[in-house]
Design a binder for these strands. Structure first.
Lengths: 205, 205
DNA sequence: CGCTAATTGTTAATGTTTGCACAATCGGGC
DNA sequence: GCCCGATTGTGCAAACATTAACAATTAGCG
């Protein structure tokens, strides 16, 4: 627990959490590193080693109690709470994200939506009124939101990212197909379907 | 070129390609491993080494010719052609994907859309008529499509994946928050925004 | 109660990836 | 034509990540 946890390990924890959450919903009580291994395609030794960096959560001969491990992981990843998210961009992708039902039971909820297109500002997506990006910095600051999702065209992404940083955002999930430039204390994750597709075409004939 | 290329290297190539494509659009002619490094947050030595696995594309003292390297990478990743994609799921996310304009100039296009909801089957998204999943296997087989995007609820994802495999699909981009079980010769890539978000909350206070 | 099969946490060995550093080479300027 | 600053490709060393293997422990069963 003292030594820093490698990024690559942190990146696997959400996968463990997701698998455990499914098992818990299926009404299961116990699992093992081997079962997780089969479900996730990650070796059992690796799963045990990853978890052991944070504590001893299992029992020899028995395995892991699903609900217990689930809670431990939620605590480690700090999703034993609901994080508020600001969404920027209310186009096709932004709207789909805003309507997505899968956030709440995994620790997140969208609480504000921004766009710069006057023809959509003021309209509703579910319970939210789309606000102007002019209000973005102040709105995010006063609501003390720390996480944002960016679903604007590539051409505007850096500019919006700059505003988000100014507003105090510390984590950005970027759907625009462009690398963002942000200070060291701001984390960025990228979602670009084409990157994944191109990675797979390499292996096609 | 003889030895197998590590997966991790293949995974970086699309990022190089994307950056180069931007530079080319900006009208630039030349770049260097150092410039790419700054734009991508990947060390210059690593970029040079990755590229050197496929050939010698640069010139000492000068750097890389953007358009030349671009074409080389397109060939390596096999996106010097347009790949047809089958999209399964015409809900919020599926519709947003179907309307996304960013595929074509990066090597892909959606050519068919399926859903199992009778109330949407037959309706149009852009130029496409949504087909029943009953027709999926035959339609994909006869059109010889090799890549699919999966945007259905988690509960149906495995079942649809099985159909896709049966239809001869070799690459699946899965938007459902669940690990898929497929034969070894089928590649799967995952897009789950919550995984990325949870990875970032670890670093928040 | 003692045996068996299962399974963890951990150590040591192995394998992979990254970074450093530099010779080689290029183009431009004088 | 020669020098200088820039920049590549690469060999080697260091850092990092994964796997294998096993002692320790557990639950269940007869």
């Amino acid at each position: 627990m003292e030594r820093a946890i490698p990024d690559i390990v942190v990146g696997r924890l959400p996968h463990y959490l997701r698998a455990l959450q499914h098992m818990s919903l299926e009404g299961r009580r116990l699992t093992s590193s081997q079962e997780l291994s089969e479900r996730l395609g990650i070796s059992a030794a690796q799963i045990r080693k990853d978890l052991s960096l944070f504590g001893e959560f299992g029992k020899q001969g028995t395995g892991y109690q699903i609900d217990y491990l689930l809670n431990q992981l939620r605590q480690i990843l700090k999703v034993n709470q609901i994080w508020d998210i600001a969404l920027v961009g209310a186009g096709d992708m932004g709207s789909a994200i805003a309507r997505y039902q899968g956030f709440t039971d995994r620790g997140f909820r969208v609480v504000m939506i921004f766009d710069n297109d006057p023809s959509v500002i003021g309209s509703q997506i579910g319970p939210f009124t789309i606000q102007s990006t002019d209000e973005l910095v102040v709105a995010i600051q006063s609501a003390d939101v720390r996480i944002a999702m960016l679903a604007v065209p590539a051409a505007n992404a850096q500019e919006v990212a700059d505003m988000l940083v100014q507003a105090g955002i510390k984590s950005i999930l970027n759907y625009a197909p462009i690398s963002l430039n942000v200070p060291d204390d701001v984390h960025v994750q990228y979602i670009d379907p084409v990157i994944h597709l191109q990675r797979m075409t390499y292996y096609l004939e």
